[in-house]
Design a protein around this nucleic acid. Structure first.
Length: 583
RNA sequence: CGGGGCGUAGCGCAGCCUGGUAGCGCACCAGACUGGGGGUCUGGUGGUCGCAAGUUCGAAUCUUGUCGCCCCGACCA
């Protein structure tokens, strides 16, 4: 039915006409706070594992983040385009990733049996664009970006938007004439990222990251600090050094044990397998033990040694060994290599490559496994009892380690959510896909690339992890779905509704994104909803105060309530929003 | 991929062990009262018990298979 005269009324963002299906009870399968709150606040709904509907409120928050990203990308000189989700297999075969990417890559065939995949990232596609139409150094540098849905068939999607299979990502790619120019592009993007996460109101750290299988010279991750974060990051208490745990350097501790070597001793340790068990049984500190781990590196067994209280860092070990695959050896291999069941491995009298953490180099008279069931060795010493092929940093940093960069700094460990990642790619894709240009001398050169991602939905989730209380979400104004909610306490009171609508209209006209809660509900439920969905500012219009021409202004974060005249309240809201958006 | 668990109304769950008319709370609809922090009462709507096969006079309940989901681990960006 067409009711043209209701058009104006429809334009009002009335809660009663809008769609914010909030729920009181916490859904059973949500683990982290952001997931719970996004479901409860009616922002998202699950469609399948790791796949979500973005409901209006959730979409508005996502759009806010996207908008900030676009503004900062554009400011940094990047240019927006849009690439398809569907990518033909040929491009991926050309780069070699069709085989390498594994099961995360969702593959499918069209009716003609041609193979495609859902893009988990777009290096291939964007490089294809550039190689077709960029010929000359005059066309460089060039940075292209898009905001697009990605699909990665994660083994275990979890935590709502935090680790979904389908997710919205901003990905940018830079193209430069040489690595020096590429460094400049990288720096521009790095700075743009700082601005983006600052504008989003996130408490984050930019940390050095391992470049992993993608290669390239350097990489930084932007980590939002949160206890629920899936990544461990370390930072120095004094200087600017910060890195992902995978990458964080452990400085060689110069504590050298000068004790005289004692004679090697065999001790019975029945059923004592773990470091803790052995240490307790022999009444020794875990740090006086040496942990021996058997790994299989490209089918070859390797023994890795660590001080008992340290953890192995597989990335570092993998980089040290320079192998393609690395995994902890299965029990059968351990038994074959050591001649003993798991739990009694040691370096003495063993015939495989031995690498050790640098900390081990300074140890004397330590305890190791005896390569025999229920036997450990005491007073084991390097050189005399066994030799190590190489010493290197192959352990995880632990809290209190000295900083690798400054003199007095101490390492601290945090949990973080990776919301952004910047990479110097080098020529990995431009080489395999033959993206080249002619330099000023007319000589063909390979383009040097960089890539830069931001998880948009994940940023919203991370924001909620950092901004909530027992009542719900507390959105920072820049990414709030609405800046202000006008609650008409008694929706049946005409004076109240009229005043609320006027406030709503004036705020909206002034650029304040406002939601009018006109629902005929009890005040309690309306307040609970407003708190839950996290609108930063709330104006409450009630009949009692309205008689004196007053309304209530409440700030969600502080809980501060002020009784103000309508004009004052409007002015204050406008000012607060303007200030928050001014950055 | 290995281990564990769960699929019963929109949501949260009970019933299953010991087979015999499918239940509770919330939500939803109607009405009344109520009206500044998820209110009360009355009456109602809604489920082929994930799906399939089997055992049985009879299956939500027992058996097998299958699909989906969740958790831990391995793996991965």
């Amino acid at each position: 039915m067409i009711r043209p005269f209701q058009r104006k009324e429809r334009v009002l963002m009335r809660y009663s006409n809008y769609f914010i299906p909030t729920i009181k009870e916490t859904p059973a399968d949500a683990e982290v706070i952001s997931h719970k709150l996004m479901l409860r606040a009616g922002m998202i709904r699950k469609v399948a594992a790791g796949i979500y509907n973005y409901l209006p409120l959730g979409l508005r928050a996502i759009r806010k983040v996207e908008q900030i990203i676009r503004e900062e990308m554009n400011r940094a000189g990047a240019i927006e385009l849009l690439m398809p989700v569907t990518t033909p297999a040929e491009l991926w075969q050309e780069s070699g990733r069709w085989e390498k990417y594994g099961k995360e890559l969702l593959r499918f065939k069209d009716r003609k049996e041609s193979e495609f995949c859902m893009g988990p990232t777009h290096e291939e596609t964007v490089t294809d664009i550039v190689r077709r139409d960029v010929r000359s150094y005059r066309q460089l540098p060039l940075t292209l970006y898009q905001v697009q849905t990605k699909f990665r068939d994660e083994i275990r999607p979890r935590f709502g938007l935090m680790r979904g299979r389908e997710f919205i990502m901003k990905d940018a790619y830079s193209f430069d004439v040489d690595s020096e120019a590429a460094d400049l592009s990288y720096e521009k993007m790095f700075n743009a990222y700082r601005r983006i996460f600052e504008r989003c109101g996130l408490n984050y750290r930019a940390v050095e990251a391992d470049t992993g299988s993608i290669g390239g010279s350097s990489s930084h991750e932007f980590m939002v600090l949160a206890d629920s974060g899936e990544d461990a990051i370390v930072s120095c208490s004094l200087c600017a050094y910060a890195a992902n745990m995978e990458k964080a350097e452990a400085r060689q501790v110069s504590t050298k044990d000068h004790a005289e070597p004692r004679p090697l001793e065999r001790v019975a340790t029945p059923e004592k397998r773990s470091i803790e068990e052995v240490a307790a049984f022999l009444n020794a500190a875990t740090s006086s033990l040496v942990k021996s781990l058997v790994f299989v590196a490209d089918d070859e067994p390797v023994l890795a040694l660590l001080r008992g209280d340290h953890d192995l860092n597989e990335i570092k070990l993998k980089n040290l060994l320079g192998c393609e695959s690395l995994e902890l050896a299965p029990d059968a291999v351990v038994e074959q290599v050591t001649g003993a069941p798991v739990g009694f491995a040691g370096p003495v009298g063993i015939d495989v490559r031995i690498v050790a953490d640098q900390t081990v180099a300074g140890m004397k008279n330590f305890i190791t496994g005896g390569n025999e069931k229920d036997v450990h060795l005491k007073s084991v010493n390097l050189g005399r009892d066994f030799t190590v092929e190489s010493f290197a940093d192959i352990r995880d940093v632990v809290p209190g380690d000295p900083c690798p960069r400054c003199i007095d700094g101490i390492m601290e460990i945090w949990r973080g959510i990776e919301v952004g990642h910047v990479f110097k790619l080098g020529t990995k894709y431009s080489e395999s896909l033959k993206a080249t240009y002619l330099d000023a001398g007319g000589k063909e050169q390979v383009i040097v690339m960089g890539c830069y991602g931001i998880g948009v939905g994940r940023s919203v989730a991370a924001c909620i992890e950092q901004n909530h209380d027992k009542d719900g979400i507390i959105f920072p104004i820049p990414i709030a779905p609405f800046h202000c909610i006008v609650s008409a306490v008694n929706a049946k009171d005409e004076a109240v509704m009229a005043a609320a609508e006027q406030i709503y209209s004036r705020l909206t006209a002034a650029g304040v994104e406002t939601l009018l809660d006109d629902r005929d509900d009890r005040p309690g439920s309306k307040f609970k909803d407003a708190d839950l969905i996290g609108i930063p500012l709330r104006i409450v219009v009630g009949s009692k105060n309205l008689v004196d021409g007053k309304v209530e202004l409440k700030e969600r974060r502080s809980g501060e309530v002020e009784l103000l005249s309508i004009a004052e309240a409007e002015a204050k809201v406008r000012q607060m929003v303007a200030e928050a958006l001014a950055q």
